[in-house]
Write a protein that binds this DNA or RNA. Structure first.
Length: 432
DNA sequence: TCTGGGGTCCTAGGACCC
DNA sequence: TCTGGGGTCCTAGGACCC
């Protein structure tokens, strides 16, 4: 944890580039009929709204709203609803990040649709021109519109981005210069600051702090005592002292989770076991992908908390491996054993998951004197399975515990084709 | 009426992000 | 009837040690 950079020359600038309504825009790229039409993208099981086009926002559809509650609005306004297509969004994201990397030496891929850029080598005029070129290149190369905000710290660049996205007149690029900061921060509500969530968004106003400008001029020690060290860093960032650096190296994950809400209620232990075995398999794959090992595995099951009238049950268990592992069969075995311990007959289960933690790198694995496993040959087997499955398709080679009948499978009734990642689903254009 | 002090490590839970 | 998924960091408090 580095301390804040107190020598932050005024020419040092950060940019935040953010794709506009990313998932909705991805759907649009391959289906131009959707231009100017309202679009929503739904979470797994077509459950909640997780992305909206501007037109859908204008119709009053809220983020996170359950789909069944807005069925009528969707029908009445001919809103195009899509199931999530992460293969498509992930691939589009990669293309955008590749374009950025080719133009800017230091970038941080912050999320699937956002990146921070280090622009410290550039003057304000250069930055302005560069940002417009970036927008144009991404639009030409991928069809995705983006907004760019520039400021003296990451937090200020987030605020600048907020403005560029909401005020059409800036043409998608807003540069927050030092002299204008107080004026702009005065217009920003504390709850719109990066790092201020729902709880702080209510708490800060109770202290009389309503705008970003008010927070900026609040005493540091006061904030430290009332909130925590992150609160203090946010204030410093608002003052132009950079506390959050550009992180251009992708750190390996410290925890790996695979969990799903089921398409249908599940009450049978066998069905639960096959789903859990599948999640353990995905987790182990992710673990091997970053060449790490885990010594803790966590399994959890829960009934549907929204169904208040039915009996509720939620339980979890953590298993500690004698030697850190990334072997799918070993993880499945441990997880299924733990599941038997927490499973209770007579409940309708709605969600289950597996989390791996205690993650370490290859060289850090402590061997155990009483270890009976042949870890060397297991690694070769895992590597081979990964290779085959990557080439031939997920779960072509699978453990028997996964089964084939999937009562718990997702509902995805509005899935768009994988235009960019599956040969059979490439877009075809009729030239007659 | 009184019950040491200080350090480290670990973990559960909360808040935040997209 | 129908309500997502995958992460990170911080803190408080307990266990343990000297």
């Amino acid at each position: 944890m580095g301390s804040c950079n107190t020598h932050n020359p005024s020419f040092l600038m950060y940019a935040l580039i953010d794709c506009n309504n990313f998932y909705a825009s991805c759907e649009r790229v391959f289906n131009p009929k959707l231009n100017d039409k309202p679009i929503v993208v739904l979470s797994n099981n077509d459950g909640c709204v997780i992305a909206r086009s501007n037109e859908a926002k204008a119709l009053g559809i809220k983020m996170g709203e359950p789909a069944f509650k807005i069925k009528n609005i969707i029908k009445k306004n001919n809103i195009n609803a899509f199931s999530t297509n992460f293969a498509l969004y992930g691939d589009m994201s990669q293309r955008i990040m590749n374009i950025l990397s080719s133009m800017i030496p230091l970038i941080e891929i912050y999320s699937i649709d956002e990146a921070f850029l280090d622009l410290n080598q550039h003057s304000t005029t250069q930055i302005y021109n560069l940002c417009h070129i970036i927008r144009k290149k991404i639009l030409q190369g991928t069809g995705i519109p983006v907004s760019i905000g520039v400021g003296r710290t990451k937090t200020l660049s987030k605020i600048a981005n907020h403005i560029s996205k909401r005020k059409q007149r800036y043409g998608g690029v807003f540069i927050l210069n030092k002299k204008d900061e107080d004026l702009i921060l005065n217009e920003i509500s504390v709850s719109d600051i990066w790092g201020v969530g729902s709880k702080l968004g209510m708490f800060l106003p109770s202290l009389g702090i309503n705008t970003a400008k008010q927070l900026k001029y609040t005493n540091l020690k006061f904030i430290r005592s009332k909130i925590n060290i992150i609160g203090e860093k946010i204030v410093k960032e608002l003052r132009g002292k950079s506390c959050f650096d550009i992180e251009n190296l992708v750190p390996s994950k410290k925890s790996i989770c695979t969990s799903r809400t089921f398409g249908n209620m599940v009450n049978d232990l066998n069905d639960l076991s096959s789903s859990i075995a599948m999640y353990a398999t995905r987790c182990a794959e992710k673990l091997r992908l970053q060449h790490s090992y885990a010594y803790l595995a966590h399994v959890f099951i829960t009934t549907n908390p929204f169904r208040e009238k039915t009996n509720q049950y939620a339980q979890s268990k953590i298993i500690k491996f004698p030697v850190a592992t990334n072997d799918t069969s070993e993880i499945i075995k441990a997880i299924l054993f733990a599941l038997e311990g927490i499973y209770k007959h007579g409940y309708e289960y709605k969600k289950a998951g597996v989390i791996l933690s205690g993650i370490i790198q290859r060289g850090e694995v402590q061997e155990n004197l009483f270890d009976s496993k042949n870890r060397f040959s297991n690694e070769i087997i895992m590597g081979t399975i990964d290779k085959i499955n990557r080439k031939m398709g997920q779960d072509i080679v699978r453990y028997a515990a996964l089964g084939y009948k999937k009562k718990w499978q997702l509902k995805q009734q509005q899935l768009s084709p994988c235009y960019t990642t599956r040969w059979s689903e490439l877009l075809t254009i009729n030239l007659n």
